[in-house]
Design a protein around this nucleic acid. Structure first.
Lengths: 106, 106
DNA sequence: CAACGATGTTAGAAAACCTTACATATAATT
DNA sequence: AATTATATGTAAGGTTTTCTAACATCGTTG
């Protein structure tokens, strides 16, 4: 069930590096977390750890912000996208089950 | 010529995370650098930055060390492997050129 | 104008990292 | 056997990086 965390998804990058890679300020990066757009992990000492995927997401966020989109709206878009992906995934799983065991009506 | 640095090769991971991921001590990680087995980059402030490839290499190194191989020998193996790869690469480039422009004797 | 959104800046503290040096226990060399 | 080299731990002191919290600014929206 749990997917192998690939390089892209492993949270191993500190905020300073993220700053360099994205060109965003640390203030901005932390603020987008506060607005629930990104979810870094933490070291035992409390330092934030990001993945490459987070970095890509941050760059998308930055673009939207530049286009005048507010963090709240971005959050809504993300929620929707997640919900859609979940729905699709469930539908596919259901399809798998039906293929294996046949459809049962009602 | 320069290859696009993929996630695997980008030097973005600090030594503390490398310690966690490899199980090696920072002392060991720095020592293997001193013995020219790994080559982290540095932040402007001087902190080491490693790639996922470095981490995999470190784990291979750790295995060999456990098997009693010395860093010096590991270094020699690496040199040889690099030399071989370079030779092969050059041979392939030569092949490409011959295919395009024909072989010229002497 | 008041409230909110987004970002900068500052301050002080804690965590992470750096180098250098000394200690130790094996292992290799002479 | 004595010496040298390898591999690692640990300590000290210093610098860099990160953290949170607070206050400031400036633009937008109600």
């Amino acid at each position: 069930m749990a997917k192998e965390a690939s390089y892209k998804d492993k949270k191993v990058i500190t905020i300073g590096i993220v700053r360099e890679l994205t060109g965003l300020s640390e203030r901005q990066i932390r603020y987008y977390e506060e607005r629930k757009l990104i979810f870094p992990e933490r070291t035992s000492g409390g330092s934030r750890k990001y993945s490459f995927a987070d970095i890509e997401l941050l760059m998308e966020i930055a673009e939207k912000i530049e286009d005048g989109v507010q963090t709240y709206e971005i959050r809504q878009e993300m929620k929707k996208k997640n919900a859609d992906a979940t729905k699709l995934r469930n539908k596919m799983i259901q399809g798998q089950l039906n293929a294996q065991f046949g459809t049962r009506k009602r």
